[in-house]
Design a protein around this nucleic acid. Structure first.
Lengths: 180, 180
DNA sequence: GACATATATATCAGACTGATATATATTTGT
DNA sequence: ACAAATATATATCAGTCTGATATATATGTC
């Protein structure tokens, strides 16, 4: 298996739960996964085609109110491949904070520009945090024995903790830069 | 400018401070930048060549104790290009936590495997945290008017805060998964 | 009725990774 | 003194993924 193409696994994961179109897959990622994963159409559609070729998913071409769409459904082969991948150790968490990169070299241009970068970062985080706080609040209430929500809760808690740490850091950073 | 190839900018940033070989550039990233950026030789060497073609850096082929090496030095054109980039707004912070992805779908296989993923994540973070704590400790002491260390301190503080948040989350996550 | 936005798919140049290859110098253990 | 392991140093490439662009229809809004 060699732990390759992660795009395969993200898509199979989403399809494990429900059949979706490529467009819907993208939407799921842009909402639920936003703070820890992302993908472009340029990888989603080609990946779906290759998954069909490999017998991991099947496609159903249909029409919805005159608009064409293709619904993808995972096969047993796909399910097995996905579960296998879940058990393999993580190869790499990939972080590329462009904000931090610009910050690191801030000495080259001075604090005004850097404070602006921090401000933009802070705004973005503040706008996204309520979704995470809401998710943690809602998911923590659920007391049934269904397992899936527990794992969703875990990721939301991760996002909440990290986002709150970001905001605390923004305060510290501003203080350091402002009192010259 | 169009904010393109980030590799250009990371390399120019490092060369702004001192002349380096491709190998040394990689080493700097693997230590100082580790927690917020990374790059492979497969992008470093080709980028250095294209920067030479664009007049951003000049190369000096030399020999060090019989071992060939090429030292790259930034030009005024390169410096200007880099400073321009620093002032442009951040286009995207890119996060791809494979750990979180496996966690999100943990319901498909159960808590043993998930706890293992969390354990591996925690070990990695614990091994890297002391470097960040040490950097914050050392840099915070410096009271001179040199500016550069202040920006380095900011990034180290970011790493420290985020890593500590990771570890707090690991505890929470374990608790939730362990009491069934 | 016009305009903006949402749904839906497809393609591609360019960027970057991870693997692989090659070669020499230094350090470590025996 | 020798071997083995590690560090220094560069280069290349198939495969992966992004960001941009293109196309077309449906729905909501003013």
């Amino acid at each position: 298996m060699a732990n390759e193409k992660k795009m395969n696994c993200v898509i199979l994961g989403l399809l494990s739960h429900e059949s979706l179109t490529g467009y819907e897959i993208k939407k799921r990622m842009d909402t639920t996964f936003k703070f820890f994963w992302s993908a472009s159409y340029g990888s989603i559609y080609p990946t779906l085609n290759s998954l069909v070729n490999d017998g991991m998913v099947i496609k159903l071409e249909t029409t919805d109110n005159g608009r064409d769409k293709v619904i993808y459904t995972i096969t047993d082969v796909g399910k097995e491949y996905f579960k296998k991948w879940l058990t393999l150790p993580v190869t790499k968490d990939e972080l590329r904070y462009e904000t931090l990169l610009k910050l690191f070299f801030g000495g080259e241009i001075g604090s005004d520009v850097t404070l602006e970068h921090i401000h933009n970062f802070e705004s973005k985080i503040k706008s996204e945090l309520p979704y995470l706080q809401g998710a943690v609040h809602e998911l923590a209430k659920i007391q049934d024995d269904g397992e899936a929500h527990k794992y969703f809760l875990l990721t939301a808690m991760f996002g909440k903790r990290v986002y709150e740490a970001y905001l605390e850091w923004c305060e510290d950073a501003r203080k350091i830069l402002e009192d010259n």
